[in-house]
Nucleic acid binder design. Structure first.
Lengths: 94, 94
DNA sequence: ATAAACAAGTTTATATTATAAACCAAATTA
DNA sequence: TAATTTGGTTTATAATATAAACTTGTTTAT
């Protein structure tokens, strides 16, 4: 009746990150931080978890001389997001 | 852009409880336990939190000689549920 | 009548999670 | 060149979820 909600996605910040990435090709750390309003520390930790789950890829490079971390949603991440939304609907539509 | 999700409702079990109660007049502990698959201990704790938040009322009585705990959604609980759903949509529809 | 098993929970302890605070290295600006 | 800013990471703390153990009383079997 109430399907299990993917614990990786059932987190305010991680869900926001995935939602954000679902709409763009990729986004960098600073942009995600701005859009979500998260602190850098929290964001760093949550990006690690999403990355460890295989839901995003995190690429580190440089833009000019400044470090730049770019995140991209993986197919697995998109699929998990879709499943999470479907599961949620079981909770909110009854 | 990403509204804050009510932390009282952003919990798998508490959300299931509210979702369940939103569809009926009231439900007792055992029924909620069965429907959600929760352990008694977990359910007890989460019902306390929902009650403390004013989202449900918890009435203790007896059915025959056996104790019976009945839970009912309050107007505040229903309103919070509605707001939570609206907030969620901001996350899942972009 | 008494022991064993069951019902309906609560309390307490533990594991996990989220969050913030402190820190670091390099780049930029005053 | 000293102070500030950028772009983060690491570590510590607070909050949460969950399960295990316990309590109180009832029913059933002996």
């Amino acid at each position: 009746m109430f399907p299990k909600l993917d614990p990786i996605l059932h987190s305010e910040l991680r869900l926001a990150v995935i939602s954000l990435l679902a709409g763009v090709e990729s986004a960098d750390f600073t942009y995600i931080k701005q859009q979500t309003g998260a602190t850098a520390g929290n964001l760093s930790v949550q990006l690690d978890k999403l990355s460890a789950a295989g839901y995003i890829t995190v690429e580190k490079g440089f833009k000019g001389k400044m470090p730049r971390t770019t995140c991209t949603l993986t197919p697995a991440g998109l699929e998990a997001f879709r499943k999470y939304i479907d599961a949620l609907k079981e909770y909110i539509s009854h």
